[in-house]
């Protein structure tokens, strides 16, 4: 057990180092950061000045050692756009992104279980077919477009909800729904198919034969066994939400989390802030992966982790 987690931690470290090295290579070698970050009309002297200021005039291996050294102290340098430490900006924005991701995936999780079970009770029935069809539609609608439609209907036409911002709980409603929909569609499908499998097992029949109530058989015995793939997918959805969806959803609703900050950093060509954001997101992804392993073990004690 302990050995397994050590292995996973090492693997996670590999991911984080891989991401940072890739970002380093892309920003320093493939592209020319000075060219990206300075306006076209800058003079040669300004360029040299800027290079010196960022330490880009030194040989690449010195830069790399310096970069990795800064990494161990969580120091990426000052954001070019806001002129203050990039990590401080990241830590300010991180809670907002986590809030949105957990709300969205949490909503998807709690809705998917009853919907998936109802569909699984009568495979091929009317409720099953409509659930599957609606899930397919949910998978096919682009997330950014769904967000815009919600804004047009509920903020512009009906005026019930604010379009963007973070001030009140009402501001959370539309971003959460937008975040939840694709995850909900995938989760419903997986709850449905793994419940169908479980309900066809012999032990379910035995439970019914013993006279255990319908709700207990379905909601406790079968659901517990069907939970493992659902938890796996939930972890993946959380990772997708933090590492991908947040960029899109936060841009649509002007939700000032890490995703929107990443887009702003790209627009302002602030590669330093961008590096800090990507590093943080990579760490989050690794952490969620490890938490998922712990959750597996708690759900299914038979599982041998190797």
């Amino acid at each position: 057990m302990g050995r397994y987690f050590l292995k996973r931690l090492l693997q996670g470290g590999g991911v984080i180092i891989g991401v940072t090295v890739l970002v380093f290579v892309v920003t320093r070698l493939v592209g020319d950061p000075v060219k990206v970050m300075l306006p076209l009309e800058a003079t040669a002297e300004q360029r040299a000045e800027f290079e010196k200021q960022l330490g880009l005039d030194r040989p690449i291996h010195v830069q790399f050692v310096d970069f990795m050294g800064g990494l161990t102290r969580l120091d990426f340098g000052d954001s070019l756009w806001q002129r203050r430490p990039a990590m401080r900006i990241v830590f300010e924005k991180l809670p907002l992104t986590l809030e949105l991701a957990f709300m969205g995936i949490g909503l998807a999780f709690f809705l998917s279980i009853p919907l998936g079970i109802i569909a699984a009770l009568r495979p091929g029935g009317a409720s099953d077919r409509s659930t599957v069809f609606l899930s397919l539609i949910g998978l096919s609608v682009p997330q950014f477009w769904l967000g815009l439609l919600l804004i047009v209907v509920f903020a512009v036409q009906l005026g019930w909800l604010p379009t963007s911002g973070v001030d009140t709980p009402a501001h959370l409603i539309m971003p959460t729904i937008t975040m939840a929909l694709p995850a909900l569609a995938r989760l419903v499908m997986i709850v449905r198919s793994s419940m169908i499998d479980e309900l066809n097992q012999q032990y379910v029949r035995t439970c019914f034969a013993k006279g255990i109530s319908f709700y207990r058989v379905v909601g406790v015995h079968a659901l517990r066994n069907a939970a493992l793939p659902v938890v796996t997918l939930c972890g993946w959805e959380l990772i997708r939400a933090v590492a991908g969806y947040s960029v899109v959803v936060e841009t649509v609703f002007a939700w000032p989390g890490l995703g929107l900050t990443a887009i702003q950093a790209i627009e302002r060509e602030d590669l330093i802030l961008l590096q800090a954001i990507v590093f943080t997101v990579a760490v989050l992804v690794v952490l969620i992966n490890i938490l998922m392993d712990v959750a597996y073990k708690a759900i299914d004690p038979r599982l041998k982790l190797a």
Partner: peptide
Amino acid sequence: AFPGLLIALII
């Protein structure tokens, strides 16, 4: 395990 969309955006 890479954050694909962010890396795509940077590249």
